[in-house]
Nucleic acid binder design. Structure first.
Lengths: 213, 213, 213, 213
DNA sequence: AATGAATGAGGCTTCATTCAT
DNA sequence: CATGAATGAAGCCTCATTCAT
């Protein structure tokens, strides 16, 4: 009874999560436009019609995924804000970004999201919001961090540093897509992070590379 | 008559160009998968069937566009190699990149290309080839440039510098997609380049910002 | 309600039958390649898309029709096996063959099927299977029949007799196609059977023609 | 000059032959409807447009092929009429029928022709004409042959014998289509002729099988 | 709440045919 | 006489979406 209660109280939320999980799995495998609603329903183990009880249409599913992405980033941001050092904050913010699931998942998803955003203002708004929030958050962290302050950081303002850091992160994410399938997730991640971290060290004059085994 | 002769010698080449021009116009407006062959034929002012005399199928059109993108980048690379200073080489390489045509064209096209690449190995190969060639080219330029040599460049190797520069360029290209439509091409371009140039100055210790009005 | 239950238990089977009925109607009218999926859907009174819920593609529809033809022949074979005399068995086997439906239906369908078979191994397999089964069946019937045994049947073995009988039946089926449209189904059938029966009498020394008014 | 004269006097005839040769090659390989005009032009080594100088449309090509088939049969008939014995006449008439070219060519072509005839009255007329002429011809040969006369031939009239003989020939031609590709042309031909000859012996009381090595 | 049968517009592609050269 | 570029209708198939159950 407690079980049925649980599933009755917020059934729609569970369903939405279930559908979005399935959707992201499909989207990563085949991209937004190559994924049919039937694909999603099969992946989720439900009927096609049911998806339409929870989402107005396919666009809405995509938008919801963008929304979820936004929440994910916000959580990372909160965790990062707790970190003792700026460096650790950066690790939290950009490492999770690329090691979640199976190979390339994040990269493909995010690039697809941007690709969508370029034609769909609703998605663009969400993605822009995510990015703005995240960049503002990092700007704030940088402004408060002693590393950035005491060391001249090349005379760059916190928001300029944040811009650079995010730009490199996005750029390496695109790069990740081109990596050959044979490369393991770990290898790809290492490659992706190496460049990103190189920028951090450069910006904040962190000395040794040994810190990141 | 000599003119008509010229156009008769290689009609197919002209047609291919015409079709690719139309295709890129459509793809930029609606993305790869939202563009139908009919859209392309209409944009090109020809019949649908004619496209198939020049391209095996839609995939082949996309691949040809990727190929053309590759040649474009290679030309830029050659021009950049002629530049007197490293700084000017960078300007050539990354400025043309984002001001060719109407707003966002380049950004949307390239992000779409990467999105395609993530599911289409043939496209991935082409894009990877473009990037590798371009990065190697820049690495070479950096290695030969006095700016990078005399100044320690933070102890980074030429290829590491190249990686960073390209990562930021790609990242700003993604960023460009999110810019509101209201922003003019010039504004967007300024924004995009500002961050990129900030990295160059930082890497190569170029002093004043005044150089780039 | 029990009725509606019946139709709900196996709706897909009914649909398949409905589609195949429509398909055969179209194929007979225009041939395999002249029949579009739209034609079939219209004939069946359903939408095009629905056909694809029951058949993978057009080829599959043709294959299913060949399959159905096979079952039809097998039923005839079973009925023929029950017949008291060899002669009656032959009547069952080869008379139904050519009087089912509207004029020429069987003939056109079967010749089309062979035409398909010549280019489509899957169809060829089915048709060959039908024929082999039917010929073996008749060989068996002949082997057991007193008519064939007591009378020397010209020294031919049962399978040789069966081969001849089927060859003539197929040959007359081709002949049927050439009959002018004006001829009634009955006339055509009479003509077609006359030759076939002439062979039977010849092979099994049946005396009078009067038996087949 | 004599050469160019030759090719100028009746160029259209040569072209027609060339095109028909190409057409039959294509039709045999892929069937009527699977063969495009482009296929034919390529096979013939000419341009598509040129075909339309010699044939009104695709239908006309098919009709011309039927016509040529008719002439081929008529030639056989004339040869057969010269044969010293009925048996040899039959050999001429039905052996050439199945050994012309590469495997199955004749069978596939003829069955396709009948398939076409069932929907195209023009083709039907031609094919019917061929058949009528040939059957009448054989009837005549039988009527004049001592074999058929002196021996009761089971009391069948010449035209009835002819009907049976042609029916079996057509039937074995259909059978040929189902033969597996692995079988050599010779094997298939042997199989096909064995049944046909069995009927002849039966009808005309030819004693030994040894005659047909 | 859940199903999945059903729809039909629309996408990709082929091909008979025409026509300017 | 000959070419082959060009057309556009039509075919096969997919898929987002709806709705009766």
């Amino acid at each position: 009874m407690s079980d049925s209660a649980t599933s009755t109280v917020e059934p729609s939320l569970d369903r939405r999560v279930q559908i979005l999980d399935a959707a992201i799995a499909c989207f990563v495998k085949h991209g937004f436009h190559q994924t049919s609603m039937h694909d999603i329903s099969t992946e989720a183990g439900i009927s096609v019609g049911l998806i339409y009880r929870y989402f107005a249409n396919k666009e809405a599913v995509i938008a919801a995924m963008a929304d979820r992405h936004k929440k994910h980033i916000q959580e990372l941001l909160e965790q990062a804000a707790q970190a003792p050092t700026l460096f650790e904050a950066l690790e939290i913010l950009f490492t999770a970004h690329c090691c979640d699931e199976s190979p390339k998942v994040q990269s493909m998803f995010v690039v697809d999201l941007y690709s969508q955003a370029s034609r769909n203002p609703q998605i663009a708004d969400i993605v822009r919001d995510v990015l703005t929030t995240a960049m503002d958050g990092l700007t704030e962290l940088i402004a408060q961090s002693p590393e950035a302050k005491t060391q001249a950081a090349h005379g760059l303002k916190p928001n300029e540093l944040s811009e650079l850091i995010f730009a490199v992160a996005r750029g390496m994410l695109m790069f990740d897509i081109l990596q050959p399938q044979e490369m393991t997730a770990a290898e790809r991640r290492t490659r992706q992070l190496a460049v990103t971290r190189r920028l951090w060290r450069l910006l904040f004059k962190i000395e040794s590379e040994s810190a990141y085994a």
